[in-house]
Each structure stands twice: as structure tokens, then as C-alpha cells.
């Protein structure tokens, strides 16, 4: 069995919430947003691991922990077998950032508007001291732009980000992540702000880079359809926990957790015959705040299968329901 490129173990991130003067005077205990609350997964070489869930479930926080943009409250992170949880020196962190790159959701705000495309791409090279001469750096920049099909590069390097379309800007963002030849890319909702046709173009590009260049991704998305298309593995998150995880097709075609089933039922599909049917949504209410996480199974207030005395008091664990298919639910397989 090959070793995973990235492995995270029981990862947690709690953000403190301001109590307010009154709360502090009353001696109330400090409160926390449990944004990520015990998450474990492995990502293998040249594979795409998707984290899926509604907003606020902790996807971005997980991505930032992996990027080491945030310190975990608990848990460990391994890259290529090496424990990287406690990297301390600037040098170590710099070396890590060179291997692990991030693509953000918003192609409009992730670039300095005063930079030309050339500067956007040269910046990581200068930070990491890659390319001795300007000519060497220019060659790397042109190669990266060609890789993402911003061609001919000389037509684009002098432009500012606002002179590109949304799709072109996202491609430049991908080129910026690729230019350091990373081992691993965290892509946080890289296509959710783009039009369908451009979305397809970017997904195709990311897929091609995976196949040809061997790039490995953590793909963060709220869109199950693109996850099925692009990812090898899917983990569904709810309030800071992974509640179901497995090969993409298995999770989508044979969902076990009630939350996964509800998410799937809600996905719109381009089938106009169903337009007059009110869709059955097997879920109640809305996501509660991550400050007040329900006891027992954290999904129980919204679950249509909830069993009183069990689900509302005891927390289920993520267990291997069938080979490679993990579920965190007391009634897995019984509903």
C-alpha cells in the first residue's frame, strides 16, 4: 500500500468567542466556535480529495490548517510521512509553503490590483529565491502561463488583474500555485464564483494537471456535482466533523448518512419534467451555530430518523461501514 501524501489526525480548531464585559463579570466560562472538531483523513498521490458541506461547516478552516495559515487547537498533520504540525522557524514554514499551495475562491480579491500578471507570478519566485536571473524567472513565468493556456503569454504579462475575465484570472491564480511545482494544492471553492461554461473550463484544466503533472488536491466545495466529476474521494462535513467519507461514486450513489442523503436530495438537476413537483427534503430546519453544537449526534435536531435516548445523548463515532466507506451515525445501515 502506498503512503498518503497528506494525512491529518483528529484535527481541531476552536476559535474563542468574545464574552462581552457582562459575561466576564458574571464569571461565565469562555465560549468557543468549534469550527473543526476532530477531523481525520488521508490524501494519496495524484488523487483529489473533496471536502463537501454547507457554509460554516469548517471546510475553509480545515484548508487553512492544512496550509498552516492557522494553528490547530489539537491534532496532527503529516506531509509525505513527516509530522509538520509544529513547524516553528520561518525557514521550515517557507519550505512547507513551497510544497503546499492554495487556490482561493475569489479570483477578484486574491490578487493585488496594482500588480501586473508578471508581478503576480514573479512574487512567489522571489520569495522562495527561485530563478537566479530575470531571464530564468521570465521563462518559468511563461511556462506556467502556457500550462494554464494563457497564450501567448506575452499578450498577458503586462496586464493588470482587472483586464482579465473571471476565468482567465482564476487560471492565473492556478498558474501562481503551480509555478513552485507544489506537491499538494488546496483549492477552496475555486470555481464557485464562475459561470458554468468557465467553471467547466477550469475543472478540465485542474483535471488535466492532475493527470499530466501528478498534482494532488484537497478540493473544497459545496457543490456535490462538481465533486463527483472531479474528485476521487468525498468527505461530507457537518458542524466541524466528517460524517461520511468514501470513494466519490460510492458516497453519491449509495449515501448512508441522513445528512448526505438530504444534501443529495437538494441538488438541482436539469430535468424539467419534475418542475411541478415539490421536492421532498428529508431534513428539518437550518444549520445551528457552531457555538452551540447540539449534544449527542450533532445532526440530531435536523434528522428525520433521530432516536430519542440514543442520538440526542451519545455521540456516534466515524466507523468503517463497509470497505473504505466511513459513516458517523448510530443507525448506519438500519435506515
Amino acid at each position: 500500500m502506498t503512503k498518503p501524501i497528506l494525512k491529518v489526525e483528529n484535527l481541531k480548531k476552536y476559535f474563542p468567542v468574545k464574552r462581552g464585559l457582562l459575561g466576564a463579570l458574571r464569571g461565565e466560562p469562555p465560549k468557543f466556535v468549534r469550527a473543526v472538531d476532530g477531523v481525520s483523513f488521508e490524501v494519496y498521490k495524484q488523487e483529489v480529495f473533496a471536502l463537501v458541506g454547507e457554509s460554516g461547516c469548517g471546510k475553509t478552516t480545515t484548508g487553512k490548517l492544512v496550509m498552516k495559515l492557522l494553528e490547530p487547537t489539537d491534532g496532527r498533520i503529516y506531509l509525505e510521512g513527516k509530522d509538520v504540525t509544529d513547524l516553528k522557524t520561518q525557514e521550515e514554514i517557507k519550505a512547507y509553503r513551497r510544497k503546499v499551495q492554495m487556490i482561493f475562491q475569489d479570483p477578484f480579491s486574491s490578487m493585488n490590483p496594482r500588480f501586473r500578471i508578471y508581478d503576480v507570478l514573479e512574487e512567489p519566485l522571489l520569495i522562495h529565491g527561485i530563478g537566479e536571473t530575470r531571464a530564468e524567472r521570465e521563462e518559468l513565468i511563461y511556462k506556467a502561463l502556457e500550462m494554464v493556456k494563457i497564450v501567448p503569454p506575452e499578450d498577458y504579462v503586462g496586464r493588470h488583474p482587472h483586464m482579465l475575465s473571471g476565468g482567465q484570472r482564476q487560471r492565473v491564480a492556478i498558474a501562481r500555485a503551480l509555478i513552485l511545482n507544489p506537491t499538494f494544492i488546496v483549492a477552496d471553492e475555486p470555481v464557485s464564483m464562475l459561470d458554468v461554461s468557465i467553471r467547466a473550463e477550469i475543472l478540465e484544466l485542474m483535471k488535466e494537471l492532475k493527470e499530466k503533472m501528478g498534482v494532488t488536491y484537497l478540493y473544497i466545495t459545496h457543490d456535490l456535482s462538481t465533486a463527483r466529476y472531479f474528485a476521487d474521494w468525498i468527505a461530507v462535513m457537518y458542524l466541524g466533523r466528517i460524517v461520511e467519507m468514501g470513494p466519490a461514486r460510492v458516497v453519491i450513489d449509495n449515501p448512508i448518512h441522513p445528512y448526505t442523503r438530504a444534501l443529495l436530495a437538494a441538488v438541482p438537476e436539469p430535468i424539467p419534467e419534475r418542475r411541478n413537483i415539490i421536492k421532498e427534503l428529508p431534513i428539518k430546519g437550518e444549520v445551528p451555530s457552531a457555538i452551540n453544537i447540539p449534544p449527542g449526534c450533532r445532526f440530531h435536531p435536523r434528522c428525520i430518523y433521530m432516536e430519542r435516548g440514543l442520538c440526542d445523548v451519545k455521540h456516534p463515532q466515524l466507523v468503517e461501514y463497509e470497505h473504505n466507506h466511513w459513516v458517523e451515525c448510530w443507525l448506519a445501515g438500519k435506515i
Partner: peptide, 15 residues
């Protein structure tokens, strides 16, 4: 260009 939830699509088309 639309990815489908329950269908295997080999390649998405784009404009």
C-alpha cells in the same frame, strides 16, 4: 458544461 450528479461524464464541454 453542466456536471451531472448521477451520470459519469468523461469530459465537460466548455465554450
Amino acid at each position: 458544461a453542466i456536471p451531472r450528479l448521477h451520470e459519469d461524464v468523461d469530459k465537460l464541454e466548455f465554450i
